[in-house]
Amino acid sequence: MKKIFHGFGLGLRKDYYSEILATQPAVDWFEIISENYFVDGGKPLYFLDAIREQYPIAMHGVSLSIGSTDPLNKHYLKNLKSLADRINPIFISDHLCWTSVGGINSHDLLPLPYNEASIKHIVERINFVQDYLGRQILLENLSSYVSFAESDMTEWDFVSDVVERADCMLLLDINNIYVSARNHHFDPLDYLKGVPAQRVMQHHLAGHSDYGDYIIDTHDAPVVDPVWQLYKVAAELFGPVSTMIERDDNMPTFSELLAELNYARTLAEPIYSQQQASVVLPVTSRYQFTSTIPSVGVQEQHYG
């Protein structure tokens, strides 16, 4: 998968269905929670189809359970594939975690020990999923609240090894890095510098609940300033990366979310333009001075 920049998106939540259709806001794409559309009909699929006619859609799952020791759920994969066939998504993503074991779903994103055994286990399963879907998937880093005694590497080394060896892409959630850095006392900059830039395909930004000694990833508040600062560093390190804001609780008006998204644009776009300007032209290209020079790997952009 080439690294494609799709611009700035928002999570598609039912609170905003009608407003999106009525006002056609300037959002480049929307991300859905895939499982919410594993249904036969009615409002969810009606609005999804209508919004899909006007916007690219990314599919983000929460129950793939790629790190589980249960067999992969074939019925789940079938649902995922038929939804992908229906909406032709720009991305299919889930989390680098496990959610179920013994046939029981926790409906939570649970961490794994960071070691070779986990990596080997997950890489095999990602290969299976990517073969089944016929495309690469993106996996997202978690917010986590415990560390396992069995871990023998940093989270970013673990994440990097998994995505490199499975040849999948990375959905880097900047807020999750911040949350985990505070909970586990590491430097978030080490994390950003420690992951393979060419595999960073998408960013999530979100708010959280800060209890001082620890932070919980609640997606119920605006993005905080330290996370914006990290996002700028990410823009420097990774170049143009499709970015969206996740909001799942304490829902604001759509225009507030849009304003927050536009803030992300104002932070990232100047950095991206500078990167484009600094691309050195090879001698043979001297007649192309007036054309736009895309930065390396950027294939496509959607604005407006």
């Binding site: 609240y145 415990v146 560390s147 005694a149 871990s151 586990h184 000694d213 620890y214």
Partner: peptide, 10 residues
């Protein structure tokens, strides 16, 4: 026995 930091994470 398997986590390094019990509280409040668990």
């Amino acid at each position: 026995n398997y986590v390094t930091k019990e509280q409040p994470g668990l």
